[in-house]
Simulated assay, not measured.
Amino acid sequence: AVPPAQGSPAIDRRYWKVDPGLLPRAESLHQTQLRLLPYYEDEVASRLRAGKDQLIVAHGSSLRALIKYLEKINNVDILKLEVPNAQAIVYDFDQDLNIVDKMITN
């Protein structure tokens, strides 16, 4: 479900030149995942496959959407997932980008 819409993004000067109709005021986790996954596949996954470590720093909703995808979490269980603030989640992947280890740092 899409959460309640927030105030107008047009009040932020970064968006003054953008048509307000193009700026979302709310986004569901599913919508976030649809927006995030093309970037993940094109930029992050391609670098991981090339053997390059990646650091991702993002908003909690974006991280939840990525974790849902990486860990293959279903729509019911994702509701229980809490992403810790200021703690790194470190994944080790095999060559097919399946998770082989996960560690949360303190």
Rank of each mutant, 00 (worst) to 15 (best):
A1T: 05
A1V: 08
V2G: 03
P3Q: 00
P3V: 00
P4M: 00
P4T: 00
A5W: 00
A5Y: 01
A5F: 00
Q6L: 14
G7P: 09
S8W: 03
P9K: 04
P9Y: 06
A10M: 07
A10F: 01
I11V: 15
I11T: 15
I11R: 15
D12M: 12
D12S: 11
R13N: 11
Y15I: 12
Y15C: 14
W16N: 15
K17Q: 09
K17P: 00
V18H: 07
D19S: 10
D19C: 10
D19G: 13
D19T: 11
P20C: 10
P20M: 09
G21N: 15
G21T: 11
L23D: 09
L23F: 03
L23S: 06
L23T: 04
L23W: 04
R25H: 00
A26C: 03
E27P: 02
S28E: 01
S28L: 02
Q31P: 00
Q31H: 02
T32I: 05
L34D: 14
R35A: 08
R35S: 04
L37H: 07
P38G: 13
Y39C: 05
Y40W: 10
Y40E: 01
E41A: 14
D42M: 10
V44Q: 05
V44Y: 05
V44L: 13
A45F: 15
A45N: 15
R47Y: 03
R47L: 12
L48T: 09
L48M: 07
R49C: 01
A50L: 06
A50H: 05
G51F: 03
K52C: 09
K52R: 12
K52V: 10
D53E: 13
Q54W: 12
Q54C: 15
I56Y: 08
I56T: 08
I56P: 05
V57R: 13
A58K: 04
H59V: 09
H59I: 09
G60Q: 09
S61R: 05
S61Y: 05
S62R: 08
L63Y: 04
L63N: 06
L66P: 03
L66I: 06
I67G: 01
I67C: 01
K68W: 06
Y69W: 08
Y69M: 01
Y69C: 02
L70Q: 06
E71T: 09
E71C: 11
K72V: 12
I73K: 08
N75K: 13
V76W: 08
D77H: 14
D77W: 05
L81G: 04
L81K: 12
E82Y: 06
E82S: 07
E82W: 03
P84F: 05
N85D: 14
N85C: 10
N85P: 12
A86D: 15
Q87S: 14
Q87T: 10
I89G: 08
I89R: 05
V90Y: 02
V90D: 02
V90S: 08
D92V: 10
F93V: 01
F93E: 02
D94C: 04
D94Y: 04
Q95N: 13
D96V: 02
L97C: 12
N98W: 08
V100G: 09
D101P: 02
D101V: 07
M103A: 06
I104W: 00
I104E: 02
I104F: 00
T105F: 05
T105W: 02
